[in-house]
Design a protein around this nucleic acid. Sequence first.
DNA 1: CTGTTAGCGCTTTCAT
DNA 2: ATGAAAGCGCTAACAG
Lengths: 336, 336
Amino acid sequence: MVASIEDVARLAGVSIATVSRALRGLPDVATATRDRVLAAAGELDYIASPFAARLASGRAATVGVVVPFVNRWFFAEVIDTVETALRKAGFDLLLYNLGDEAGRAAFFDVMPMRKRVDAVLVASLVLSDEEFDSLASLGSPVALLGLERPGFLSVRIDDIRAAYQAVEHLLSIGHRRIGLIGGDTDDPMRFTPPLHRRDGYRDALRDAGIEADPTAEVLGYFTIGGGSAAMEALLGLADRPTAIFAESDEMAYGALRTIRRAHLRVPEDVAVIGFDDQSNAELMDLSTVRQPVAEQATDITARLLAAIDGDVERTNVVLPTELVVRGTTRTECSVY
Amino acid sequence: MVASIEDVARLAGVSIATVSRALRGLPDVATATRDRVLAAAGELDYIASPFAARLASGRAATVGVVVPFVNRWFFAEVIDTVETALRKAGFDLLLYNLGDEAGRAAFFDVMPMRKRVDAVLVASLVLSDEEFDSLASLGSPVALLGLERPGFLSVRIDDIRAAYQAVEHLLSIGHRRIGLIGGDTDDPMRFTPPLHRRDGYRDALRDAGIEADPTAEVLGYFTIGGGSAAMEALLGLADRPTAIFAESDEMAYGALRTIRRAHLRVPEDVAVIGFDDQSNAELMDLSTVRQPVAEQATDITARLLAAIDGDVERTNVVLPTELVVRGTTRTECSVY
DNA sequence: CTGTTAGCGCTTTCAT
DNA sequence: ATGAAAGCGCTAACAG
C-alpha cells in the first residue's frame, strides 16, 4: 500500500542506503543520484517511517513539553511559541499536562516520556529533588522555563525585580498605602512567582521606609475571580489602600471589576497595576509590568535543541521586564 | 545502560515473547510466570521502547490533535480535556497548531502526521475538499469537533439553535431592537460558528416579525478587543440597539466595557448576552448560552479511540446548549 | 501456557 | 560515491 524505502530505491535504481542518505541531505551523494532519488520519492509520495527511523537511529526527534495548565494565558502562549519553533526544526511536540496533584504524582511515577523524547521542557513547575532526579535520569537535556536550577539550562524573568518595578512606580506617583493581591504561596503546584513577586513588593515598601502590613496582603487564585475576591477584602479594610499591586493581569482585572462595583474610581480612588502585559491589558488600559513570554519560549527552545546536538552549556538566562504605564495609574500625584 | 526486553527475560527465566505478553496483560500467561516477569521488570525499571513496539505492531498509540489556536479559551479547553482522556487510554497526544494561513498550507502540504498517528482529531477547522481528502488518505480514523461532514465521526453543538435561544431570550424580555456582534464571516480559517450564529440571530428576529437591519450587525475579531470595537460602532448608530447578542463571551466582555465607558447602564440602557459560558462569564454576571466543551471533547475522544479499534460508526453527535440568564439581561421588561 | 523465529522499515558501519 | 549487511528492540505468528 504505502511506499517504503525499498520502493524508492528500486524506482531510482539505487540501494536503500543511498536513498536514506539522499533524502536526509547527507554529504557524499552525487547530485545526479540525489535528484533521481528525490524524484522517485516524490513520485511515490514517500516519507520515512518515523518509528523505524527512530528505532534505527536512536533519536526520537521529539521533545516533551510539561506544563501545569494549558488553559492559562502564560502556558498557552508558551505552548504556542514552542510548537512553532519545534515544528520548524523538524521535531514533534509531545504534550504533558500535569493537571492536578494526582496527575503530577502519576506523571513522575510512570515517567511516560521515557524512551520517547530527546529532550524535555518544563514550564514553571517547581520540582522536588526527587522529581528533578527523575528528569535527570532520563539522560536527555532538560530545560526549565520560569525557574532556575544549577545543572539545568533555563530561562526566566526576575520576578522580584519586576514586582519591585511595579510597586516603585506606585510609590513614585505618591502612594504610601499599597495593597498586594497575590497568588497562594502554598499551592500544590508550588509556583514560585507568587513568592518572588510578594518579596519584590515587600522590598520596595521597605526601601521606601514603609512598614509592612500583613492585612494589606491578600492571597488567592491567580484568576479574575481570585483578584475580585481579594479586592473585596482590601476594600473592607479600615485603612483602605490607595493603590494595588496585583501579581497577574488576570487578578488585576478582577480587582478593577470589584472597585468599579463599589462605585470607586480608577485611578482616582484606587490605582491598580498588574503583571504580565497579556493580550487584554492594553484594552483594559491596565498599567502593568510586561514579561516577554514568547522571547523566553523561543530562547529556551533554541538552546534546548542545541543541547540535543551536544552543546552542553547549562546556563541560565534572565530576560528583562518592562514597566508599562497606562490609565489605571496614570494620574500623577493623585494622593496627598 | 537501560534495560531491554532481553534483560527482563533473562532475569525472569523466560523468553522475550513471554515478557512481552505478560507486560501487556495478554491472556494465556500463567499467574506465577506473570508475577515473575512483573517483578523482574520492576527490578530493572524496564519499560518497552515505544518506537520498537510501534514499528513491530504497526500501532502508533498516538493521536494527532489539530487546532487553529492553542491560546483561545475554546481550544485550550479542548486540548486540556482530550489530553487527559488520551493519557488515560495510554495514547500520546501529538499537537499540531496550524497558526496562520501559511502554517495551514504547509501542514496540508507535508502532512506531518503521516505514519505517526493512529487517528486524527480536528477541532473547528472547516476544510476544503482537498484538505478532507488529505486527511482521509491517511487511512486512519478522523474525528471532527465543532463541525460535521458525511463520512467522518463528529460532535458539535447546534450553533444556529443556540444563537436563536439567545436572541429569543432578548425578545422575551421585551427587546425589539437587537444588535449583533459577530465574528468575521470570511476569515482565513473559515470558521463556521460566526456564520451559524448569525443565521440563528436572523432567524429569531424574522420569527418575531422584526425586519433585519444590516447596520445592526457588526463583525470583527472573536476577542475582547473585537467586541469592544464593534460595540462602539453600535453605540454610534442613530437608532441605538437596546440589546446585544455577542457571538462569544469574549466579545461580550469587550462590549460591556465599551458600554460602561459610554456611561450607559447594563442592562437598563443596553442588555447583553454572550455565547459559551466560559470561565469568567459567571463572575462578569454575563447572560450567555452555555456550550458543553469538555463534554464534546470527551465524547469525540472516546468514539475516536473506539474507531481505532475498528468500531466504525461514523455518526455525528449534537450536544445541547443551555440558556444561562444572569445580570446583564436580568431586568424584566426593562424596555418599553 | 511458553518458546522460536521472522519480520517491522529504517540507519549505519564497513567495504569497495 | 555507492552497496551489502547487521542491527535497533520489539510484536506476532506458529509450533509445540
